[in-house]
Amino acid sequence: MDAFLNSLTSGLIVGSLYAIMAMGLTILYGVSHVFNFAHGHVAVVAAYLVWFVADRLGLSLPVGIVAALLVMIALAAGTYWGAIRGLLRRSEWAFGTLLFTLGLAILAEYALLELFGPRVKSVPAVLQGSVRLWFGRLTLNDLFLIAASVVLMLLVGAFLKRTLTGQAMRAVAQSLPGAQVVGIDIDRIYAATFVFAFVMTGLSGVLLGTKTYMTPHIGWEWMIKGFVIVAFGGLGSVPGAILAAFLLGVVEALVTLFLGAIWIWPAWLVTFIVALWIRPEGILGGRSG
């Protein structure tokens, strides 16, 4: 029973991290219809940067996070204005942006490999120590991860609802021509969405980096997990992505407990296919915002 509860807790923690990771992806898709194949690598690059500043350079963790986020913003703005903006003006924009982000992911992996080598690394835990709960021990870092995820989700909700840019992002997601006729500068909102998504994704990578290990290669795994969550929850739907992330986090933990880690991928795939059969638009439908 304790093993079951332990694994359920760990599933919920991982699920909350997946939720943060999937949010950037789903919002980016919902607004711009760009599916970011470099998504996982954006997360990994941010995690590596934090590791580099905090661990290798020996500066503090907050400094590392701020540095990583600044790089994320620059990267997002560069990617949008330098490439995506032009690609979106083509008739084959969907495939073009898909391939471009794929190429970007490879370049990111190559850069990480050259700069930091292939060995396994992890982001230092934010908090040390652990607490005893009635079913077992929970590390303070896990508690921090849960708190951080909840805070981030609430912040995203507030951003989308309350700020002008957030409202404009939802507007573009719900009707691109509608957004055009009310005078929203689509390019600016797309660029803002890229920045927003890269920052969220980067943060999720840093949080995941404290919980699991990372290599330059792991971006692909994170990317595909992000995909399944987002597709499962309904592309562009934030609540759907959060729900799907928790569901898959728990499925993953339980499958690991009862069948072994090797069954994780087949289990994800089966869940995914079944879900798409039942609800082709995702569990909460393809609604946006």
Partner: peptide
């Protein structure tokens, strides 16, 4: 070695753009 990876990525990005 790993340079192949970089070249592949570069080739894809340049071709698409």
């Amino acid at each position: 070695g790993s340079l192949r990876l970089g070249l592949l990525g570069l080739a894809i990005v340049v071709t698409v753009l």
